[in-house]
Nucleic acid binder design. Structure first.
Length: 297
DNA sequence: GTCCGGTTGT
DNA sequence: ACAACCGGAC
């Protein structure tokens, strides 16, 4: 197979794809095109960094290799398998998504954007990731904050959300949807970083408007992907109590009487009850008639 | 202590 | 439009 010159593929495409080909890491979700496995990996990678996802991902897809197997497991088992990943509500969403896949799609992932986005826990990013990384579509740009930053710097100005998505879609070279999108995410994460970008190591700095212009302030990436809102103190927060209770529930059910201690508020049972109710509302816990809390069946 | 992030619900 | 969700990195 020869590599024919292709007028539609720019030097930027060639440089980035070649960069990715040389330095790509051999990660488990890069060895599969199975849509369910890709979905699981993307949901985990949204919130957690690669080294910690690897073992969780492998254990998860080994235990639940299909949407149907996941859907038929108790939600509590899925929440327990999620331990250490954070954002436990996403384990609930994944379980609901698996059930919806079985109910509405024969246990398979849809191959079109609207159907994917209609599923619980799947938004614009994850839907396009499934299309690009599982179905190997080459007409969708996978846009996370990393890719958005890369595109804004290439353009030399901040891009609105719809504008960035359009640019991401248009940048995908024909037949290279999988590699191109993987490369974009990698470039944003490791080279085109939010602060202290490594333009000297960037394979496409010569076609980057911001870099060519000498990186004038303000950074065009600022504002293109929503500024971060400061996180309030964790210690003593409701979040901390939620986390403590879910951890306790992963080990055993918790009697109503033991709730305040389990949540770290032995002197504030009212607060424990109130915050535990938010967990129930999120589908992460159940209360039986005697007041015992447990992970959902 | 501060920052990070995609989806959901307000 | 924006806060909540999490736990780990820095």
């Amino acid at each position: 197979m020869t590599i024919a010159p292709d007028a539609a593929v720019s030097p930027r495409h060639a440089a980035l794809l070649s960069w990715f080909g040389e330095r790509r890491r051999d990660l488990p979700w890069r060895r599969t095109r199975d849509p369910w496995a890709v979905l699981v990996s993307e949901l985990m990678l949204q919130q957690t960094q690669v080294p910690r996802v690897v073992p969780k991902y492998e254990a998860f897809v080994a235990r639940w290799p299909t949407a149907a197997s996941c859907a038929s497991a108790p939600l509590g088992d899925v929440v327990t398998a999620w331990a250490g990943l954070g954002y436990n509500r996403r384990a609930v969403n994944l379980h609901r998504c698996a059930a919806a896949l079985v109910a509405d799609h024969g246990g398979a992932l849809p191959t079109d954007l609207p159907a994917l986005m209609a599923l619980p826990g799947i938004g614009p990013y994850t839907a396009r990731a499934v299309l690009a990384f599982a179905h190997e579509r080459d007409d969708v740009g996978v846009l996370d904050t990393n890719a958005a930053r890369v595109l804004a710097r290439w353009a030399g100005r901040s891009l609105g959300r719809a504008e960035a998505q359009r640019a991401a879609d248009e940048a995908v070279p024909p037949g290279q949807g999988w590699a191109w999108n993987q490369a974009m995410l990698d470039l944003g994460a490791t080279v085109c970083r939010p602060r202290a970008p490594r333009c000297d190591q960037c394979p496409v700095s010569r076609s980057c408007a911001w870099s060519v212009a000498g990186r004038p302030g303000p950074d065009p990436a600022i504002g293109s992907a929503g500024g971060s809102t400061g996180q309030s103190t964790f210690a003593g927060s409701d979040r901390q109590g939620r986390g403590r209770l879910v951890d306790a529930l992963r080990r055993a059910p918790v009697d109503a009487f033991d709730l305040p201690a389990a949540m770290g508020w032995p002197d504030d049972p009212a607060r424990a009850t109130r915050v535990a109710a938010t967990l129930v509302a999120d589908g992460l816990a159940q209360i039986d008639e005697s007041g015992t809390h447990r992970l959902p069946a």
